[in-house]
């Protein structure tokens, strides 16, 4: 008992000392890297004058100061301490990579120029072309949202109907099996010909790409619901509406979410291709446009923004799943 007490008294000390050490040394290290990036960018003469070199140097130095400041504040505010501890190694690594990039391009000019430009030219794109980039993001999100929502709803409805009614299943299943594996982009020429506008054609294609995996997984989810679940509800007075909405749908929800994630991935691919081929707006178009003008820094910026958009949307879907499927937390590893 005494030993247990002693251990309990000593136990918090060890993590605290680690925290103190990490609280000082790692953020300091990260800040030094970013300071070095600022100093190298500003002080090392360049083979070629790049715009925004000073702004980039100042930004790097500012970020270093921000790291130091948050490490300092974390001493007084524990929630920030957790974030600082998990984030700092990555901030240090990113600073190192930027430093390497800056030296290889702007300072030593070792890499061929139009394809590889220093980080400050990326900054240039964001500072000068933010309007066009921003509009492209909004257009992409709007197009994607329409197609994805239509596809997701249609997929869930069709999957539920297939799981519920043998007749619907008999007629839909072979069609899904035959047409489903076809990539939605293969319909592109036909869709642009049939639909009045390229935007409506793209909405249709995105909905198709989303709807197929959602329908298949919803169907398999409903099909795998234990018949005892229905028996229970029926003996307690449930009608078929209740059985569909309150038993089959929630029971199939984990499957449905797998379909929604697959559909989201497929919809990104269709979105970019559709924007490159016909829509003349959005991030896909921006990439195409940047390539046409050999504006490679714009292309990198566009790719970066697209990565942020896609990962942001996936994170949003994860959020939704965590809310709706909170009951699974004790059953499945997330």
């Amino acid at each position: 008992m005494a030993i247990a007490h002693g251990e309990r008294a000593r136990a918090p000390l060890a993590p605290a000392s680690i925290k103190a050490a990490a609280g000082y040394s790692l953020p300091t290290f990260a800040a030094v890297i970013w300071f070095a990036l600022g100093a190298v960018t500003f002080g090392w003469p360049q083979a070629q004058a790049w715009p925004y070199t000073l702004a980039f140097a100042l930004g790097a130095t500012g970020l270093g100061l921000l790291v130091l400041l948050s490490a300092l504040l974390a001493q007084f505010w524990p929630p920030l301490a957790q974030r600082v501890r998990t984030g700092t190694p990555w901030i240090a690594l990113l600073g190192g990579l930027f430093l390497l990039w800056e030296i290889l391009t702007a300072k030593l000019a070792l890499l061929p120029v139009p394809f590889f430009q220093p980080p400050q030219s990326l900054l240039e794109v964001f500072l000068e072309d933010y309007q066009r980039l921003g509009e492209s993001v909004l257009r992409s999100v709007w197009l994607l949202a329409r197609g994805y929502l239509i596809g997701a709803v249609a997929g869930v409805v069709l999957g539920m109907a297939m799981g519920w009614s043998p007749k619907v299943n008999y007629w839909s299943h072979p069609i899904l099996r035959f047409i489903g594996p076809l990539p939605a982009t293969a319909w592109l020429p036909l869709a642009f010909f049939i639909f009045p506008t390229s935007a409506s054609a793209s909405v249709f294609l995105i909905a198709l790409a989303t709807g197929f995996p959602v329908a298949i997984l919803t169907w398999s989810g409903v099909a795998s619901v234990s018949s005892a679940y229905y028996d229970i509800a029926r003996t307690l007075g449930a009608n078929s509406r209740f059985l569909i909405l309150k038993v089959a749908l929630p029971a199939a929800m984990p499957h449905i979410f797998v379909g929604l994630f697959m559909g989201l991935g497929a919809s990104f691919a269709v979105l970019v291709v559709a924007e490159m081929m016909g829509v003349k707006a959005g991030l896909g178009w921006y990439l195409q446009w940047a390539q046409g003008w050999a504006a490679y820094n714009n292309m990198y910026a566009g790719l970066l923004v697209m990565a942020l958009m896609c990962s942001g949307l996936v994170a949003l879907l994860f959020r939704l799943r965590d809310r709706l499927l909170a009951w699974q937390k004790g059953l499945v590893r997330w």
């Binding site: 005892a228 229970i232 003996t235 307690l236 038993v247 029971a251 929800m253 059953l331």
Partner: peptide, 19 residues
């Protein structure tokens, strides 16, 4: 047909895991 005045209790509790 089933009727709530006659209720069946199964060997498995068959509780809905999401509720």
């Amino acid at each position: 047909d089933p009727d709530p005045e006659r209720v069946l209790v199964f060997q498995d509790p068959t509780l809905y895991p999401w509720r």
